[in-house]
Amino acid sequence: MDQKGIGLMSDNTPIVQGRGIVKRYGHVTAIDHSDFELRKGEILAVIGDNGAGKSSIVKAICGATIPDEGEILIEGKKVNFTSPIDARNMGIEIVYQQLAMSPALSIADNMFMGREIRKGSFMGKYLRQLDRPAMEKFARDKLSELGLMTVQSINQAVETLSGGQRQGVAVARAAAFASKFIIMDEPTAALGVKESRRVLELIQDVKSRGIPIILISHNMPHVFEVADRIHIHRLGKRLCTVDSKDISMSDAVALMTGAMTPEEAGVAA
């Protein structure tokens, strides 16, 4: 029942720890006493069949849904998020599948949407003027850090960017503001081969900065390329968490679909 993989645990406290999380919608149990663990500096992929509840468990972690039972600890401290904004205020950033950007607004505007910087002067205090130079500089710096920037165009509308570029901006936004970890929901689902490649590079770039990432994805090659560990979700709970080097892609799919048990795959630990 308990598959926390205690043997692998170091003395480091996990970044996120979910214990016995339950979420019911009427008669449907979306999360059924599931555990969850994200460790320092890792990319944890969450995979599962459609309807297995992988989105539900991640939503519970970022405050988008409030679990009925169980507890969530961030860096060892119990939290009770009531909205994604609570999570964001703690330094948890989410890159949504649908990107959550306003196409007609500029890159800089989008990066600071909902957390704008005002000028410190009279204009900012009383006339609430935004500090555009500061916001633009910050946005430019962050995009440059991730190798995403040619300098002159931070005021370009997001809708003039390609899908990969938009994803890049979304990742840069998350990386700029995340102090704890980033959740990425299907970041390569809508992208072409080349663009997916670039986004995977970005994910590894972000990881190398020490920010752990939860990656929800259907794309097994992408999962196996970047993930350190794989959380396999099945029937509303965590089936097991495996090291991505210890399992083959076909075994992972077999576990995910129930064609194989963790014992058969030799990963039950």
Partner: peptide, 24 residues
């Protein structure tokens, strides 16, 4: 043009769900 409120008005008109997810 120059306040957060104004940017939020545009964002809400553009895509209210995206605005909400961004924290507006």
């Amino acid at each position: 043009k120059h306040t957060a409120w104004g940017r939020h008005v545009y964002a809400v008109g553009d895509d209210p769900e995206a605005a909400e997810l961004s924290g507006v």
